[in-house]
């Protein structure tokens, strides 16, 4: 196979980094024999590749792998824990606990503000309604039937709770 400069260039990288099959390499070499420009390029690429390869050696610090394995095993053990246990462990660190506390407080404050401003749906809640609902839960029908005066007292109380400033004014 006779290669042109462009085809040879495409194969030069592979040739320079040592991955072309012998037949292709032979074609590249045949081109290089007759092409000084490609020959210079090939020499430069090969030299660069071998310089980079030769300079890439390093050693791992002594004792690194045992320490690495211990740390990894500890992390893997953590991965095996159920989510609740992982949360508990995460929260056990003071820094994380503080962050969680701050976040909870911020969320609580945001929810309270949203509730007060009516962002959580519906009109702002009336404390009187809430108290009324609580009272209804506590006082059963049997109780009011047995103690008619209790029912009367509660009705009066409810009327008082729902009476606004206008009602107070009227009463005066």
């Amino acid at each position: 196979m006779r290669l042109g400069c462009r085809e040879a260039m495409d194969l030069l990288v592979e040739a320079a980094t040592g991955t072309v099959p012998p037949a292709v390499r032979a074609s590249v070499v045949a081109h290089l024999v007759g092409c000084p420009a490609c020959r210079r390029e090939a020499a430069a690429l090969e030299e660069t590749a071998s310089l980079v390869r030769a300079a890439g050696r390093f050693t791992v610090p002594p004792g690194f792998w045992p320490a690495f394995t211990d740390r990894l095993q500890a992390r893997v053990a953590l991965e095996r824990l159920p989510v609740s246990a992982r949360w508990a462990r995460w929260l056990a660190r003071p820094r994380h606990a503080l962050a969680a506390a701050v976040l909870t407080a911020a969320l609580g404050l945001a929810a309270a503000t949203a509730g007060r401003l009516g962002f959580l749906g519906g009109a702002p809640s009336d404390p009187a309604d809430a108290f009324d609902a609580q009272l209804r839960g506590l006082v059963t029908e049997t109780m009011t039937a047995t103690l008619p005066s209790l029912a009367e007292t509660i009705d009066t109380w409810r009327a008082g709770l729902h009476a606004g400033p206008d009602a107070e004014g009227d009463a005066r």
């Binding site: 260039m9 990288v13 030299e47 590749a49």
Partner: peptide, 13 residues
């Protein structure tokens, strides 16, 4: 990859 390697080797050079 080959084109990038070619560019990388030239740049390294």
């Amino acid at each position: 990859v080959k084109a990038t390697m070619f560019a990388a080797l030239r740049r390294l050079r």
